[in-house]
Design a protein around this nucleic acid. Structure first.
Length: 200
DNA sequence: GGGCCGATTGTT
DNA sequence: ACAATCGGCCCG
């Protein structure tokens, strides 16, 4: 599987986040596990996050957590969420400009475990050790193997999942009718506020 | 230092 | 509908 070892040059990531996001559909996220074992999944759902985007972690500026988003493109931005899950992003835009594409679902050739940003990280063994990993380096244990661009008619867009701001931005891209694309589950912060109100 | 809450998920 | 579970961030 020599093809799996190919990567995109850094210029691929040094573009507008929206362009990178839709171009990532159909490509393969590849992880090297201890013992030189490779696990890969075809990316079928992504979301774009940019500066000037109130839903972006980097919206309020540089912090320790998000500083890799301000660094050179083509690196991994991994974060820990809800006290139990990791999510992986690809850093985009020129160095100095924050931007990232969240990988929300991959297809393990029909096998389970790739649907949802937290689940795919668990399946692929992605955690904070890969935070900042250079996806363009052959020494990396995480990278993206190129694929032909998806035909436009196979791509669908929507509002992003689980974000309570900037819902007007249709920055979620996914492959139409794909089984591993996440299904929307309304309920997140409403429940907590509702519960608080009820307890008053 | 304290409290709130999140780019989630599995179970009831 | 809700619990599990914890780090980041705000404190006007």
């Amino acid at each position: 599987m020599k093809e799996l070892l190919a990567t995109y040059p850094r210029e691929f990531y040094a573009r507008s986040t929206l362009a990178v996001a839709s171009d990532l559909l159909g490509t393969k996220l590849v992880r090297r596990l201890p013992g030189d074992v490779l696990i890969s999944g075809r990316i079928v759902e992504v979301e774009a996050y940019t500066k000037d985007d109130s839903a972006c972690h980097a919206f309020k500026g540089v912090t320790e957590r998000v500083k890799v988003m301000f660094g050179p493109p083509g690196h991994a931005y991994v974060y820990f969420i809800y006290g139990m899950h990791y999510c992986v992003n690809v850093v985009t835009e020129a160095e100095g400009t924050p931007g990232a594409v969240l990988i929300r679902a991959v297809d393990f050739e029909g096998a389970k475990g790739g649907s949802g940003p937290g689940r795919l990280c668990k399946t692929m063994g992605i955690d904070m050790e890969l935070h900042g990993a250079d996806l363009c380096s052959s020494k990396s244990d995480l990278w993206i193997s190129p694929a032909q661009k998806m035909p436009q008619e196979e791509i669908e867009v929507s509002a992003r999942v689980g974000v309570s701001s900037a819902e007007d931005k249709l920055w979620r891209f996914f492959i139409k009718n794909h089984q591993d694309v996440t299904t929307y589950r309304p309920y997140t912060k409403k429940s907590r506020s509702a519960k608080r109100l009820a307890n008053d």
